[in-house]
Design a protein around this nucleic acid. Structure first.
Length: 649
RNA sequence: GGGCGAGUAGCUCAGCACGGAUAGAGCAUCAGCCUUCUAAGCUGAGGGUCAAGGGUUCAAAUCCCUUCCCGCCCGCCA
């Protein structure tokens, strides 16, 4: 017999038995399906209910008496996976599994389903767009931004395994002023061919150009303040200039030639800021020369991103350019439609969206879980000069996404929570209720460096590539130390998947809502509760299996009677539950926690009991089957989080 | 000022959606385990007013209220 979710089968049996006993002994009590909880301890059985505590008061009886009464009414002829039902503690009812049967069911199911075990399919498959990463193409992806693709890719994977039709989208924000800054610098340099990884190359141009242009702008602002005798402004401007001059000094030292050349070229323009604004307008208007230039430099940067993401097994199905929504009528159509709603106000050409009014008119606050005194600030949609803002364009993009999907999950930092809420309210305002309800902002907290926030404008950041390189280097040192007999190619191969796995694991293991301070120590952890630890454990299990032959007929599973063996079987049987929960509640870190705890238990077992040299051939067979199942499930779980499950390391 | 998120062992974090049995890991500290299947491992010890106070409940780290502290947001930036 095979079960896609063995533990669920056991749970259902317990529920039936309990419902039957309740009906017989307390027919006057009508209860909905009773939820059974896992016990804290194998000795208390595997599932328990605290039902009697609740009933005790109503029936004016002691909880323990009730529990004993109910246990007495249990019909043992209905038992299949159940071994016994007992009362315990102050009034719990504990359900004990029949381990011989349950182990057979679980291990047979894993053996049959292999790479599909655990991935219980949803009854309601949907088309889901997961938008993630979406880093602006201005400079290399830094470690602060790297939490996004790790979470996004893992979510996409688990949803896909759940049976949804998942599409991974990257939204390229190329319309902002920043894109014009880098394009301006790139064009001033004569559109050079990259001499290094293209995103790194573009990033240097961006940082240096933006610094030079900013100083130029501030100096002109200073002249103006002097002319107008505006002392307050002057103080502030001088302070800003000092700040930027110190950044300039840093950049000049890091990239002396690039800095000199760019400074000379930018100085040819009397007002570089004006040039950038002109370029920005030209691009928004879709003028061919501007299109050609901005797309060229953006694509260079994106080529670099793709290379980085390939290293960690992250891919995308669609690259969506923000500019495409501006060049086609999509953004203007949204504006036309929004203007017909009562939520738009026009002050001297500036269009504001009154988000709070939407929540009041449509009574959305309770529905969205917002408190009544949470007054949503208005959102500016259109500037005085007629151009649109980021969120305005995002509304058009979101509507487009819903033409291709039933559900949209945006992986975006929690600092954008307000903008994402306003976006959702705009959908409601336009009558896109279903879309609004199916729009999820998956928010995550920032990664900071000790003592300061990463700043791409100032060039203060650690790139994801640097982190990956360092992790691989560190893994190489470890593998050389631990396995000196391996040849160079094997060492490099192992170092690669160990280093990359470590980084992926670390970034999804922590609850996304928690802020993270980046330290090398955190990422380069190769000990318990890390990808390398789980990978090592998988390799250990593989090593045993490599040295053995597993017989086709099922062994005597009753022989697996040690406590840790029972715990292992239960953990394996619970994998489908964990997978379903992680998927339904969008909690990728549950998968990491699960696989770590499975590895923990296996290592305990490994150290305590021999497999290949167990006391009898029957026991060897039984343990080998257990090890094989553990290997399969570890591999499946690692696959969900995008980490390689190695045979050797 | 208002909103949102966080506060659990010296440090880094699970557990909280759905209240339940002695609050769990790792790091660090201390004491042990490699002539036995991979020591990136295992066993054990010490370490907690679950930020504080109140409330609901047979039962609260978990739910409610108040306060404190930290982060983020409240732009004709993205």
């Amino acid at each position: 017999m095979i079960a896609s979710n063995p533990f669920e089968l056991f749970r259902q049996e317990c529920q039936l038995v309990l419902a039957d006993a309740l009906e017989k002994s307390l027919p006057e009590i009508k209860l909905p399906l009773i939820s059974l909880k896992k016990t804290p301890n194998v000795d208390y059985g595997q599932l328990a209910t605290s039902l009697c505590f609740e009933l005790a008061k109503k029936l004016n009886q002691r909880p323990l008496d009730l529990a004993e009464h109910l246990v007495g009414a249990v019909d043992k002829s209905k038992f299949n996976l159940l071994d016994k039902v007992t009362s315990a503690g102050g009034g719990y009812i504990n359900f004990h599994v029949n381990f011989a049967k349950f182990t057979l069911l679980t291990l047979q199911s894993i053996k049959e389903l292999t790479s599909q075990y655990g991935f219980v399919k949803t009854d309601t498959p949907q088309k889901i767009i997961v938008e993630h990463t979406s880093v602006n193409p201005l400079h290399s992806i830094h470690i602060g931004q790297a939490r996004n693709p790790m979470l996004g890719d893992t979510l996409a994977r688990i949803l896909q395994y759940r049976g949804h039709d998942v599409s991974r989208h990257y939204y390229i924000d190329d319309v902002g002023r920043q894109s014009s800054v880098v394009a301006y610098g790139y064009s001033k340099l004569g559109r050079p061919k990259p001499t290094e990884k293209p995103d790194l190359f573009v990033g240097k141009i961006y940082t240096v150009t933006s610094c030079i242009v900013e100083i130029n702008r501030l100096k002109r602002a200073r002249d103006k303040a002097v002319a107008l005798h505006n002392a307050d402004d002057l103080v502030k401007i001088n302070k800003d200039i000092d700040d930027w001059m110190s950044i300039a000094a840093e950049l000049k030292e890091k990239y002396p030639i690039l800095f000199e050349v760019l400074l000379a070229k930018v100085s040819e323009d009397s007002n570089p800021e004006e040039e950038i604004n002109r370029l920005n307008h030209a691009y928004e208007n879709g003028q061919p020369v501007a299109k050609d230039l901005v797309r060229e430099v953006s694509n260079l940067c994106l080529d670099g991103f793709r290379a980085t993401m390939n290293r960690i097994n992250v891919t995308y199905d669609s690259w969506d350019w923000e500019s495409d929504f501006v060049w086609t009528p999509q953004v203007s159509e949204v504006m036309t439609k929004l203007k017909t709603t009562p939520y738009i106000s026009n002050e001297k050409g500036v269009l504001q969206f009154n988000a709070d009014q939407v929540t009041q008119t449509l009574n959305l606050k309770p529905k969205l879980g917002l408190s009544q005194n949470n007054e949503i600030p208005p959102l500016t949609l259109v500037r005085a000069d007629g151009t649109t803002l980021y969120t305005t364009r995002d509304i058009a993009y979101t509507i487009w996404k819903f033409k291709h999907a039933d559900k949209v999950i945006n992986i975006i930092g929690m600092e954008q929570s307000l903008a994402q809420l306003q976006l959702k309210l705009a959908l409601y305002a336009m009558g896109y209720n279903k879309e609004a309800e199916n729009l999820t902002h998956f928010a995550y907290n920032l990664i900071t460096l000790p003592g300061y926030k990463m700043s791409s404008r100032r060039g203060h950041y650690i790139t994801l590539d640097e982190v990956l390189n360092e992790a691989i280097q560190r893994a190489y040192e470890e593998v050389s130390k631990r396995s000196p007999t391996l040849n160079e190619e094997e060492k490099h191969n192992i170092a690669n998947f160990v280093g990359l796995g470590a980084v992926r694991y670390t970034l999804i293991d922590i609850d996304p809502s928690k802020p993270v301070v980046f330290t090398w120590e955190r990422v380069l952890n190769f000990e318990t509760n890390s990808a390398p630890y789980v990978q090592y454990t998988h390799a250990r299990a593989s090593s045993i299996l490599r040295k053995a032959t597993i017989k086709p007929q099922p062994p005597q599973f009753g022989l697996l009677s040690e406590r840790i063996e029972k715990e292992l079987v239960l953990t394996l049987a619970g994998f489908p539950d964990t997978f379903i929960e992680a998927t339904e509640y969008l909690k990728p870190n549950m998968v990491a926690d699960y696989v770590n705890s499975l590895a923990d238990k296996f290592n305990t077992f490994y150290n305590a009991y021999p497999v290949l040299k167990a006391d009898s051939q029957d026991l060897i067979d039984a343990r080998l089957t257990l090890v094989k199942a553990i290997q399969t499930v570890m591999k499946n779980a690692l696959n969900l989080i995008g980490v390689v499950a190695p045979e050797k390391m």
